[in-house]
């Protein structure tokens, strides 16, 4: 039977703590070795529920992105920013985050290098070029 996680042990909280160390926290399935982001509780390949924590370097290349001209509530004061999907180095995993200071597509060609800068309670996973 799976143990309930306390707030301190929550998967989101662990992900955030790793992001603040500029890492991306992943789960490696103990049964089949498949790698997933920390927030997944069962292996999507073999349904295994035992994992090894794996900290990946929070760096990678831009896969796609948008520059949000009309920001949702909570982001109105963020200036011009991009929401970015990036492929994490040395894995097939992707993550997404908030990259401030992007004004035009010329500022962020596809495959630009980005890295994790931390986790902001207001703006989420912070990235920098």
């Amino acid at each position: 039977m799976m143990e309930k996680l306390s707030a301190k042990e929550s998967t989101h909280q662990k992900f955030i703590e790793a992001a603040n160390r500029k890492k991306i926290l992943a789960h490696k399935c103990s049964k089949c070795g498949h790698l997933m982001l920390e927030t997944v509780l069962f292996c999507e390949k073999c349904s295994g529920s035992k994992f090894e924590h794996t900290e990946l370097e929070g760096a990678g290349t831009v896969v796609t992105y948008t520059i949000q001209a009309v920001a949702p509530e909570g982001f109105e004061d963020a200036g011009s920013y991009a929401w970015v999907v990036f492929k994490i180095d040395n894995s097939q995993l992707r993550a997404s985050g908030f990259l401030p200071g992007i004004k035009t597509p010329a500022d962020l060609p596809i495959r630009t290098r980005v890295r994790v800068a931390g986790f902001d309670p207001k703006h989420g996973l912070m990235l920098q070029k």
């Binding site: 948008t66 949000q68 920001a71 929401w83 997404s96 985050g97 703006h123 996973l125």
Partner: peptide
């Protein structure tokens, strides 16, 4: 957690 919370509409 990954999308709206990181500023994506």
């Amino acid at each position: 957690f990954y999308e709206g919370g990181n500023g994506a509409s």
